[in-house]
Write a protein that binds this DNA or RNA. Sequence first.
DNA 1: TACTAGATCGGCT
DNA 2: GCCGATCTAGTAG
Length: 204
Amino acid sequence: MNYSDFSKKLKKNFYTRDVLIVARELPGKILVKNENGKLYAGKIVEVEAYDGLNDEAAHTFLGKTERNKIMFEKGGYFYVYFTYGAHFCCNIVVGQKNHGAAVLLRAVEPLSGVEFMEVNRLRRNAITKKDVLSLTNGPGKLCQAFEINRSHNGEDLMGDKIYLLNAPKIRQENIVQTKRIGIKKSVDLPWRFYIKDNHFVSKK
DNA sequence: TACTAGATCGGCT
DNA sequence: GCCGATCTAGTAG
């Protein structure tokens, strides 16, 4: 697969739809980052939807701030934030302008640039099967593996540094929908989606 | 395998 | 001043 084939890049109209529609379709798509001569690619296997309108857990629930302002743009941007004094998490901004919604990328399956991911995550080569599985199976982990940090906040996914490639749609019966992980507000919303039986999903 | 606590700092009240 | 869309190491079983 050619991860620089821009003809397969997801277009603006993929991102500007309702957050739950986009979140359900994101698993299976390919996340690509190409910067400083390093190409990273991974299949998205787990995501969570955050919608500022009715979702207390969303960063945009209380309105626009310096940190979350990119989430109020029209869909198709990258939103990266820093949390717990240690980790970055990355999101795909979706929906219409001023809505304030995004989809958190929680896990990917490594496809290209694995040798860089091993160094970024483990400071050495992956030895065991468990080493490989722990490279990108969590939101903080995948950002560390892909070298994603605050400098990538606001990146335009229509550009050539960070973008998503289309891939065959996952059959609906192979998408699992559950409650979200690691939050204390709006805990009952079933807005987490992952690929059934994929080994790189963060939990269950 | 399962649970717990500590790290660590920026965003927001 | 509080706390988080997390991760890891440690302990107990």
